[in-house]
Nucleic acid binder design. Structure first.
Lengths: 231, 231
DNA sequence: GGAATTGTTTACGACTTTTTTACACGGAAA
DNA sequence: TTTCCGTGTAAAAAAGTCGTAAACAATTCC
């Protein structure tokens, strides 16, 4: 099934990006690119990304925040590329959820080998298990970014889909408003809880049988929201 | 379930071995050691090894062969430690099945972080079951923020839940009114013992079989309240 | 450039939670 | 018995939170 692995490159310098693109294309990967963290999150949120190559030294924000946000809805491998050699940076990035940390300058051969190692592990750890989640009359294929209800396809906007993916990744658990806002909109939106009301409303409108009486996207007043699988 | 991860160190220099042993013990790992590849394979073959730290430069054989052999029966993570910095070696080791490659000399902090990253990935394979507290006909999953009584979910407000969590955290102990008030409402509310009567009342109403004859949320007149687990 | 889609913001009614008020109960001491 | 005091319920008022629709801005797509 997983023919061509899809790799997302988040890197601001066009030159390095091209270098990486060519290197990965030679490995037989499909390459997605972003020059800013926000774009990277959006692309990653669109689904179907098997590996993220992330430059930590981006101008528009902290790469650590990217890792944390991404980890909010995905377990996919993340490989850090950075010019920073200090141990502190490596430790912080790895502990935030990165899988490997490569210091610039690096050999293209080593990059290839480390990418292969990560992909191999991904392939082994049951990605084949179940990329499809079902609840009620809804079927969600997170990898293909496909949502259907009673067999009919459902259109979701990027933000709606990310919110859905994040809730589906934590079934039965309460996700606090802070967590959702920080991982979907960014750490500076932690106070803007009205976004959640609007977008949870959208999800209920599109996916619940009776949006007035939600059975899967439940409100925990004063705390956050809970995704209830089943039936 | 997997309390202490078991780590196998394959390294010939006793000094480095000790260094690694101490470093990993500090992380809360159980450490196995081997100074030759053959011994390492035997130990790994005995099972129960969650992570292998392997020095490539051993005198009694090629570490690459070790990896290949190990991969013959195990998918467990392998972290290479080596003095060799040439790219060729890294590529060969990674392609043979290693998951990470760290060049000596390395910082102990980075080693820790990379070990944690590998262990994290291993831990994710299994389904995380959160710890639950039970009493009477009530089951409380603090992590999921889920409370059920006779299988039926019970709705708790934020304050009710905090009060419950606090009492459950100190089973059998008397929690003074001052302590409860200070921790839940804030230090300036230590005199307002009235709140407690109202909210303990709510908990009894929602969780006790007979709210008039509480069996789990007991009053210690003049002092505070006590949570009585069991039955 | 214009149309369609998406994201952001605002406003307001409905609902939930918290706080406050009121009063009844019961044991201990006078 | 009466008078306290700390306690337990109920129900109100107040404060806060949530859901929805709709307008506006930004973006994307043709």
């Amino acid at each position: 099934m997983s023919d061509k692995p899809r790799v997302l490159i988040v890197e601001d310098e066009a030159q390095i990006r091209q270098f990486l693109r060519l290197a990965l294309a030679a490995e037989g990967c499909t390459v997605l690119e972003a020059s800013r963290l926000a774009d990277g999150l959006t692309l990653a949120g669109d689904g179907g990304v098997d590996l993220v190559l992330l430059d930590l030294g981006l101008p528009d924000g902290d790469g650590i925040d990217f890792i944390r946000a991404y980890r909010g809805w995905s377990d996919g491998p993340v490989l850090i590329l950075s010019a920073r050699t200090e141990e502190r940076h490596k430790i912080d990035a790895l502990d935030a959820g990165a899988d490997d940390y490569l210091t610039k300058p690096f050999g293209i051969g080593e990059l290839h080998a480390r990418v292969r190692a990560l992909m191999r592990r991904r392939a082994r750890s049951g990605v084949a298990a179940s990329p499809v989640v079902e609840f009620g009359e809804v079927v969600v294929d997170l990898a293909r970014r496909l949502v259907t209800r009673r067999g009919e396809p459902v259109r979701l906007t990027p933000i709606e889909f990310r919110l859905l993916a994040m809730m589906l990744a934590h079934p039965g658990q309460v996700l606090t408003q802070r967590k959702l806002l920080a991982d979907i909109w960014g750490p500076s939106y932690v106070e803007s809880s009205h976004y959640l009301r609007v977008y949870v409303g959208h999800l209920r409108q599109k996916l619940e049988d009776d949006p007035t009486q939600p059975r899967h996207f439940l409100t925990e007043t004063g705390v956050g929201y809970r995704f209830q699988p089943g039936s």
